[in-house]
C-alpha cells in the first residue's frame, strides 16, 4: 500500500513554503524579492520530479516492479529532455 499520507504532508509543506516565497517575490523590495521569487520557481520545478522519485521508491518498496520501472523510465525521459534542451 502506498504511503500517500506522508507524501501529502510533504507537499503541503512545499505548498506553504512556495506560497511564502511567491509573496516575497511579488512584494519584497530589492534583491530579497529576486531571491524569494527564484526560490519559488525552483520549488515549482523540483516538486513534481521529487514526487515521481518518491513514487518510484514507494513502488519499489511495495514490489510493484512494473510501475517502479515505468517511473524510472519517466525520470530518464525527463532527464534526457532537459539535457537535450540545454545542449541545444
Amino acid at each position: 500500500m502506498n504511503d500517500l499520507g506522508v507524501l501529502s504532508k510533504i507537499l503541503m509543506v512545499a505548498l506553504v513554503v512556495t506560497f511564502a516565497c511567491a509573496l516575497g517575490g511579488a512584494f519584497l523590495p530589492g534583491t530579497a524579492s529576486v531571491w524569494s521569487g527564484t526560490a519559488c520557481v525552483v520549488i515549482l520545478i523540483a516538486v513534481p520530479v521529487l514526487r515521481v522519485t518518491w513514487l518510484v521508491v514507494d513502488w519499489t518498496k511495495s514490489r510493484d516492479v512494473k510501475f517502479a520501472l515505468l517511473g524510472c523510465a519517466l525520470l530518464v525521459v525527463l532527464a534526457t529532455s532537459g539535457a537535450i534542451v540545454f545542449l541545444r
Binding site: C21, A22, L23, G24, G25, A26, S33, S36, G37, V41
Partner: peptide, 9 residues
C-alpha cells in the same frame, strides 16, 4: 521573476 512570483501566488 516578479511576475512569475505574483502568478505563482
Amino acid at each position: 521573476v516578479s511576475d512569475a512570483a505574483l502568478v505563482a501566488a
